[in-house]
Computed example of a mutant assay.
Amino acid sequence: MLIELQRSLHQSWCQTFGPSSVETDAPLRGLLEVAGERWAFRRHGAGVEFKRQGDEVAVDIHDRFDDPDVFDIWRLELFLESKAIVVRGRALEQSLMDSGRCLLSGQHYTLT
C-alpha cells in the first residue's frame, strides 16, 4: 500500500509542480487531490511529507523523491505509525527480509 500511495502522490506532485521536490516553485505547504482524496503536503529538505485529510495517514518521501518505488525503514515506520501499527527498527527490517518480497540496496528497499 505504501508504494502505491507514493506512486500516486509523486505522480500528482509531478503533474502539478514538476519532477523535483527541491527545485520547484511549489509552496512550502499546500493541498493536492489524489484519487478523490485531499492530501496536505509540507516540503522539507530534499523531500515532501504528505498527510491524508480525515485520517492523517502519512507518507513522507524524505529522500529519493525521484524514485517512488523505493522506501527505507524510517519511511515505512512513519507510514505504519500513522495507521496505528507500531513496528520499529530491527524487528521491521527482519520482517521485510523474512517476507522474501523485498530487495535491499544500500538503505532502501524495493518490492520484488
Rank of each mutant, 00 (worst) to 15 (best):
D66T: 05
E93Y: 11
Q11K: 05
L78P: 06
P68D: 08
S21E: 08
G30V: 07
P68I: 01
S8K: 14
A84K: 11
Q53L: 15
I85M: 06
R75N: 12
G36I: 15
Y109N: 03
A40M: 10
P27Q: 14
A91E: 15
Q94F: 13
V87G: 05
L31C: 04
V57L: 14
L76S: 13
E56F: 06
L103W: 08
H44C: 00
E33H: 15
L32T: 00
F17C: 02
L103G: 07
Q94D: 14
C102E: 08
G45R: 07
Y109L: 11
S95V: 04
K83E: 14
P68E: 06
Q11N: 05
F50L: 01
R90I: 14
A91K: 15
S95N: 07
D66Q: 04
A40F: 09
L80I: 12
A26I: 00
D72R: 03
I85T: 09
V86F: 12
S21W: 02
L92N: 00
T112P: 04
E81A: 14
L2K: 09
L28E: 13
L111Y: 02
G100V: 05
E81V: 11
S105L: 09
L76H: 09
L96M: 11
L28I: 14
T24I: 00
H62A: 14
R7H: 06
D69W: 07
S8I: 07
V70P: 00
C14D: 04
F41A: 11
L103K: 09
S8W: 10
T110F: 10
C14L: 07
D67S: 11
R7T: 04
L31P: 01
G36C: 10
R52L: 00
V59S: 07
S95E: 10
R38M: 08
S95H: 07
R42K: 08
A26H: 03
W13C: 04
A46H: 15
W13P: 02
I73N: 11
P19Y: 06
A58C: 15
S8N: 12
H44T: 03
M1Y: 09
G45C: 06
L104F: 07
D72E: 10
E77R: 10
R29M: 10
H44M: 00
E56K: 09
T24E: 00
Q94P: 10
W13T: 01
D25E: 10
G54A: 11
E33R: 15
D72T: 07
Q107L: 10
D25R: 11
E23L: 02
E4R: 09
A35R: 14
L80G: 12
L31H: 07
D63P: 08
P68K: 04
G45W: 00
T16S: 14
